[in-house]
C-alpha cells in the first residue's frame, strides 16, 4: 500500500519544511554508486539514493548505419519500471511513466550530443557501434529521474568496448580497454513545486503531493541540454528561472557524487 500524506506535505512545504526534516533543496544521503554490477553488460552501475535503487546497464552492438547518418553510430535509452520495485507497477509493456523516464534520459544524452557518434563508426555507410542503455528500477522510493540519469552516466563511463575478431564478430566475453567517446556529461535534476514551494529529491509520497515538476539536464559548464516539464499546473517564467538556478547548482553536486565513485 502506497502511503499518501498529501495535506501534511503541502502544509509543511508552505513553511519550508519536509516530513523527514530535510532542507527543501537537500538530497537524501548518502548517495552511493556501485560499479560493474553486471558482468554481462559492457558497463553497469547501481545508484542508491535514500531508499531508491536504480540499475543502468550498457550493451554495445555493431549494426548497419542509417542512410541519413552514414558515418555515425547511435545511442538509445530504454527504461523499465519493474513490478519488483514497487506495488504501483504492473507486468507488461512499459507504461507512460517508464516511457517518459526513458525519453527524458535519452534526450539528456543523445540529443545533447553527449556521445561523439562519429567515433562509433566502423565503416562509413556500412557499420557502426550502437549503444543501448537500459535503466531498471529496483526500489522506487522517489526521484527516479535524477537517480536514473546518474546511473546511466556512471554505466557509460565504466563501459568498455568488447573485442571484435578479424571477421567482425563481437566476442562479448572479452573487453578491450577502449572507452565510450563521451564529450559531455549532462545530469538531470528534477525540481518539483509543492504548494508553491520548490523542492528536490522527493519521496514517493512527496511526488504525489506535487503540482508540477521540471527536469533539467545540465553539463559541467552549466549548459542546459534537456528539459521536461511535468504535472498539470503551470510554472511562471520567474519560477523557471529559480528552478534553473537550483538545477545548475544541484547538477554540480550530483557530478561530485559521480566523480567520487567513477573515474572519468
Amino acid at each position: 500500500m502506497i502511503i499518501i500524506n498529501t495535506e501534511t506535505i503541502k502544509g509543511l512545504a508552505k513553511d519550508g519544511k519536509r516530513m523527514d526534516l530535510r532542507g527543501m533543496l537537500e538530497y537524501r544521503s548518502p548517495i552511493s554508486i556501485d560499479l560493474d554490477i553486471s558482468f554481462t553488460a559492457e558497463g553497469s552501475a547501481k545508484v542508491t539514493m535514500g531508499d531508491t535503487v536504480v540499475i543502468a546497464g550498457v550493451k554495445l552492438s555493431i549494426e548497419k548505419t542509417y542512410g541519413d547518418t552514414p558515418d555515425e553510430g547511435g545511442i538509445t535509452v530504454n527504461a523499465e519500471l519493474l513490478p519488483l520495485s514497487s506495488s504501483e507497477y504492473e507486468s507488461g509493456p512499459p507504461g507512460i511513466k517508464a516511457v517518459e523516464l526513458a525519453r527524458v534520459i535519452d534526450r539528456g544524452i543523445r540529443e545533447s550530443k553527449a556521445i561523439d557518434l562519429k567515433k562509433l563508426c566502423v565503416k562509413p555507410g556500412e557499420k557502426a557501434w550502437f549503444i543501448t542503455v537500459d535503466i531498471i528500477s529496483i526500489n522506487d522510493a522517489g526521484n527516479l529521474f535524477d537517480a536514473a540519469g546518474l546511473a546511466a552516466l556512471a554505466a557509460l563511463r565504466t563501459a568498455r568496448f568488447p573485442v571484435v575478431d578479424e571477421k567482425g564478430v563481437i566476442d562479448y566475453k572479452h573487453k578491450t580497454d577502449v572507452k565510450i567517446p563521451i564529450v559531455k556529461e549532462p545530469l538531470p535534476v528534477t525540481v518539483y513545486k509543492v504548494n508553491g514551494q520548490l523542492m528536490v529529491d522527493l519521496t514517493v509520497a512527496e511526488e504525489k503531493a506535487a503540482e508540477s515538476r521540471l527536469t533539467v539536464g545540465c553539463d559541467a559548464h552549466g549548459v542546459i541540454s534537456a528539459l521536461q516539464k511535468g504535472g498539470t499546473t503551470p510554472l511562471s517564467a520567474v519560477e523557471i528561472g529559480h528552478i534553473l538556478d537550483i538545477a545548475i547548482e544541484k547538477s554540480s553536486f550530483l557530478r561530485g557524487v559521480l566523480d567520487k565513485f567513477v573515474k572519468a
Binding site: 500500500m1 502511503i3 499518501i4 500524506n5 495535506e7 501534511t8 516530513m19
Partner: peptide, 14 residues
Amino acid sequence: GPDLCKVEGGRIMS
C-alpha cells in the same frame, strides 16, 4: 465508537 474518526492532520506511516 470511542477514538474512531476520520484522519485529519499528522502523518500516516506503515
